[in-house]
Nucleic acid binder design. Structure first.
Lengths: 360, 360
DNA sequence: AGAAACGAGTAAATCGATTTTTCTCGGTTG
DNA sequence: CAACCGAGAAAAATCGATTTACTCGTTTCT
C-alpha cells in the first residue's frame, strides 16, 4: 500500500534515488528499461518506487524533448454527437500511445481556431488533429504550415498540399442519396445546407446534383444555402416555401417532394419548418439528412440519414498523424471514408403522398 | 511581421534577453509587468519579443509552481448535448483565467475515472471538475480526497463532506413534472430510469413520487429502473408493457397514461418502444423526459423535457473551484441549480386520448 | 560624512526528469 | 607493470521560465 506523502508534495525522482541509494540517472534508466543496470540496484529502485508511490511527472519529462507527448484536437463544437464521438475516439487512441489529448472547440470561428492553434504551438504539441470550421484553406492550416507544425485535417476538407486529410466521402454518399430519391420517383428536390464555404457542403451538393441530373435530366433541384448561422437558413427556408406557390393546393407541380439536408442543423431546421406548416413526413414531403443522430431512429417517422464513419475517420487520422510524428516523409495523403445511407421512414414515394399543406 | 525561425526551434527567453541586451530575469520581469525596469530596457525587450515572435512556453512556466495552470475535467461521456455544452462552458471559463482545460471522458466506467484522475494528479493540475459516473461516493472522489486534490463535483451528486458540489435541482424539477402530470389528470404513471446508483436518478424519483402522492394519493406509480446499460432497460420496458394487459383494449384501466423518463437515454428508449407498438404521443400515451435536446422541439410531436441549467452549473462549479484554488477555506458548499420544465406536445390529458394500442 | 534606503539589474538556484559526459574500479592484455 | 577496456554508475548539462539573493550606483536621511 503506497500512501506516504498524502496531501504533501509528491515524491520526485531524487527522492526515489536517495531511498534506493543510487543516483537519479540510474532511476531514470531503470524506468526506461535500460539493461546496463545491476539487477540488485534495479530491484532497490523498484522497491523505492513502490514505497513512495512514485509516478513520473509528465510535464518535467516532456521538458527536454522538442515535441511533447501531447496531441491537440480542435473541433468546431462539442455539442453534436459527431464531434463528441470523434473526440472520444481520438482521446482513446492518443491514450493508447501514451499521449495526452487536449481538445478545444473553435466554436465555429476561424479567429478562435487560429488562436487555439497558437496556444497549442506554445505547448509544443507533437501533433494536431484539426477539424477546420470551413475548409483546408483557412488561416489555421496556414498557421500550421508557416510554423512547421505536424498535423492532420479532418471532416470539412477534401485534400491539401501540406497535410494529410481524412474525411467522409460526401460526394459518393450524396450520389447514393440521389439514386434513392430519383429511384423513388422524386423529380423536384430541395437541397438545404449550412456553411456555404465548407468543403464538404460543396462536395455534397455537387455529388448530389451530378448524379441526380445524370439519372433524371428533367429533375428540378432547388438550393437553399446559408453562410454560417442557423437562423438565416431558417429565414431563407421559410421564404422559399412562402414565395413558392406550394400552399395553393395546385398539387405537386411546384412544390418539392423531397428535401435533402447537407448538414445536421439543416435537418433540424427543415423538420421544424415542416412542423410549422403542418407537413408530415413522408406523406407531405420526404426528408433525408447528412449526419445521423441517435434520436433519428426513435422519432415518428424515423429520419433517413447519411451515417459518417466516425471510427474510421478518427482511426486513420491518428494513424497518419503518428506516422508523421515518427518522421514519415512523402506527399500528403487524402483519404475519403465511405458513408452508410440509412433510408428510413421519412423518405417515401411522391406517388403515395397527398402533398397537401393540410395536416391530419 | 514576426516570422523568423519558422519551422526551427522556437525562441526562448534567453534569445529575447540576448537580443535585447539584458538578462533573462529582466525579460521575465517585463512580461510580468514589474515596474522596476527602465522604460528604455522594457522597450528593447518588447521589440525583441516582437521581432522573434516570442511566446512563453506554458510548460516551462508551470514547472516551478506546485499547482500548474491546468484544470482537469472528467465527464462520463462526450456524445450528449449536455456534457458537450458543459465542456464548452468549462473550457471558455478556464481560458478566461489563463488556464488550459484538459477534458477526458470516463466512458461511464469508475475504473477509468480513477485512472484518469491519477493521470491528472501526475500532471499536478490546479483543480478538477469531476462529473462522476455514479455519485459522490465513488472511488474517484476518494482518490481526490486521499491525495489532497482540489476539485468540484457536478451533475450526478447531491452533496459531499469534502468537495463543493453543483448540480441541477432534480427533486424540485421532478416535483414540477409531477404537478403537471397530476394536474392534467394522469393517475397511472410509469417512471423509467437508467443508472440506479446515480445520485440524481434517486433524487428525481423521490421528488416525483413524493409530490405525486401528495397531490393525488390514489395515483399509481410504476417504476422501471435499470442499472447501467441501455439495453437491459429496453428489455425491462418491453417486458413491462408485454406483461401488463395494456394491449387488450380494456381502456385505461391498467395501462399507464404517461411516462416520465429520468434520463435522456431513457426518453429515447421509451420513444422507440412506443414506436414499436405503434403508440403516438400524446394521444396514446404522454411522455416527459429529464434532459432537453435540440431535436425534441422539432419532432412531431415535440417532446416535453426538463432543461438543466448547464451554464449555471458550469459557472458555479468553476467559481467554486477557483475560489478553492486561491485558498478559500470553509466547509464544502452544495449548490442546486433550478431547472426549467418545458411542457411540449408530447404531454396531453388522458381524457383526450383513445389510449388504444392501435395506431392511425 | 557615513549609514541606510532604494532603483535597476544580474547571476544562480530551482522545478523534475532525461541525456551526455565523466569517473571509478576491476580485470585483461602487451 | 603500465596501458587499456568496459561495465556500471555518478556527476553535470539541459530544457525554459521564475525567483531569490546579491551587486552596484545613486539618493536621502541623520
Amino acid at each position: 500500500m503506497a500512501h506516504r506523502q498524502d496531501q504533501q508534495r509528491r515524491a520526485s525522482i531524487h527522492d526515489v534515488a536517495s531511498r534506493a541509494g543510487v543516483s537519479a540517472a540510474t532511476v531514470s534508466k531503470v524506468m526506461a528499461g535500460v539493461t546496463t543496470v545491476k539487477p540488485e540496484n534495479a530491484q532497490r529502485v523498484f522497491d523505492a518506487i513502490e514505497q513512495l508511490g512514485y509516478r513520473v511527472d509528465p510535464l518535467a519529462s516532456d521538458m527536454r524533448r522538442a515535441k511533447r507527448r501531447i496531441i491537440g484536437a480542435i473541433m468546431p463544437e462539442f455539442e453534436s454527437e459527431f464531434f463528441g464521438q470523434m473526440v472520444t475516439q481520438l482521446e482513446s487512441m492518443a491514450e493508447q500511445r501514451g499521449y495526452t489529448l487536449v481538445a478545444a472547440s473553435s466554436r465555429e470561428s476561424e479567429a478562435r481556431e487560429t488562436e487555439i492553434l497558437a496556444r497549442m504551438h506554445d505547448w509544443r504539441v507533437a501533433g494536431v488533429v484539426l477539424a477546420p470550421v470551413r475548409n483546408e484553406h483557412g488561416p489555421a492550416a496556414a498557421f500550421m504550415k508557416a510554423n512547421g507544425m505536424t498535423g492532420v485535417l479532418i471532416d470539412r476538407v477534401l485534400c491539401d498540399d501540406a497535410f494529410d486529410t481524412v474525411s467522409a466521402d460526401s460526394a459518393a454518399a450524396s450520389a447514393e442519396v440521389a439514386r434513392e430519391l430519383i429511384g423513388k420517383g422524386h423529380r423536384h428536390i430541395l437541397v438545404v445546407g449550412l456553411g456555404e464555404q465548407a468543403a464538404t457542403v460543396r462536395a455534397r451538393l455537387d455529388g448530389f446534383r451530378t448524379t441526380a441530373l445524370h439519372l433524371a435530366p428533367d429533375v428540378r433541384i432547388d438550393v437553399v444555402l446559408a453562410e454560417t448561422d442557423v437562423e438565416p437558413l431558417r429565414a431563407q427556408l421559410r421564404d422559399y416555401f412562402d414565395k413558392g406557390e406550394f400552399d395553393r393546393g395546385e398539387g405537386r407541380g411546384k412544390r418539392p417532394t423531397a428535401v435533402y439536408s447537407l448538414f445536421l442543423k439543416g435537418t433540424l431546421v427543415a423538420l421544424s419548418e415542416f412542423r410549422r406548416r403542418g407537413w408530415h413526413c413522408p406523406n407531405d414531403i420526404s426528408l433525408v439528412g447528412f449526419d445521423d443522430a441517435e434520436w433519428m431512429q426513435v422519432t415518428w417517422p424515423a429520419i433517413a440519414a447519411v451515417v459518417q464513419p466516425v471510427r474510421q475517420i478518427a482511426g486513420h487520422a491518428m494513424a497518419a498523424l503518428f506516422a508523421r510524428i515518427e518522421g514519415e516523409e512523402g506527399p500528403p495523403t487524402a483519404r475519403l471514408e465511405p458513408c452508410k445511407v440509412l433510408m428510413r421512414e421519412s423518405v417515401g414515394s411522391p406517388a403515395n403522398g397527398p402533398h397537401s399543406a393540410n395536416p391530419r
